[in-house]
């Protein structure tokens, strides 16, 4: 009988440069440091019961990372949180620990906040509105079987957009999960080809993971 817990955590600051595989290894080591009763699989090479909900692109920040941990015995969620937090690197902050509600496969969307630093926010925001209201935004998406054309216009939902003079901040929702997954960087890359004034190094932050009905994933 396994005791299964999900943990929501942030990945900010320096931690955003930890790749997905490296983060996996980091969690494994931190679990050992915290001396938690993690469950191992059977077999010749036992591995820890650790599952990440959705991989995050290298360089993205996030307030909504979810990891599932299986333990060989029940333990207090408060205790788990404090023991893990004590050993995790800066930038990885545990927000909550809870019993799983949804299946991992139910993840269907993700919301992102995208910050585009620039010299003239008003102009850039104007460009953005024009760009996102075009009929079609066709890009080539790299898949396992070569390239495929997708229409980003159809797939992107705009939640908000604001001008802060030296930058614009966009909030968008895109399909995420195992069936369709769209990385917001391809949208921003395409937008970069359609602007009058160039913007600086864009910053991405994943704000939410959502289920099929666009309710929060737990």
């Amino acid at each position: 009988m396994k005791f299964i817990v999900r943990m929501r955590f942030t990945k900010t600051g320096r931690a955003k440069y930890i790749s997905h595989l490296d983060l996996m290894r980091c969690f494994q080591r931190c679990i050992r440091c915290a001396e938690l009763p993690i469950a191992y699989s059977e077999g010749y090479h036992p591995h820890m019961h650790i599952i990440f909900a959705a991989a995050l692109s290298l360089g993205f920040e996030s307030n909504y990372e979810v990891i599932e941990l299986g333990f060989s015995e029940e333990l207090s969620l408060y205790d788990l949180k404090s023991r893990m937090q004590a050993v995790l690197p800066d930038g990885i902050d545990i927000i909550s620990c809870y019993a799983p509600k949804h299946k991992m496969g139910e993840i269907s969307y993700a919301e992102y906040e995208i910050t585009l630093p620039c010299s003239d926010g008003e102009k850039l925001l104007y460009d953005w509105k024009k760009f996102i209201s075009s009929d079609k935004i066709i890009v080539q998406k790299k898949t396992k079987r070569g390239y495929r054309e997708i229409d980003l216009k159809e797939l992107t939902e705009c939640i908000s957009e604001k001008n802060e003079n030296d930058k614009i901040i966009l909030e968008i929702r895109l399909p995420a999960g195992s069936t369709v997954n769209v990385n917001p960087s391809i949208l921003i890359e395409e937008f970069g080809k359609n602007v009058q004034i160039p913007f600086d190094f864009p910053k991405f932050c994943r704000k939410k993971l959502l289920c099929t009905e666009k309710t929060e994933f737990f």
């Binding site: 600051g13 320096r14 931690a15 440069y17 930890i18 790749s19 490296d22 980091c26 080591r29 931190c30 440091c33 290298l58 360089g59 050993v87 995790l88 690197p89 800066d90 930038g91 600086d200 190094f201």
Partner: peptide, 19 residues
């Protein structure tokens, strides 16, 4: 360095912050 890190191999080696 932030705008440069994603252009290079294994950026985590240039940013510190390890456990």
């Amino acid at each position: 360095i932030e705008p440069l890190l994603l252009k290079v191999q294994k950026p985590a080696q240039y940013i510190g912050g390890e456990v």
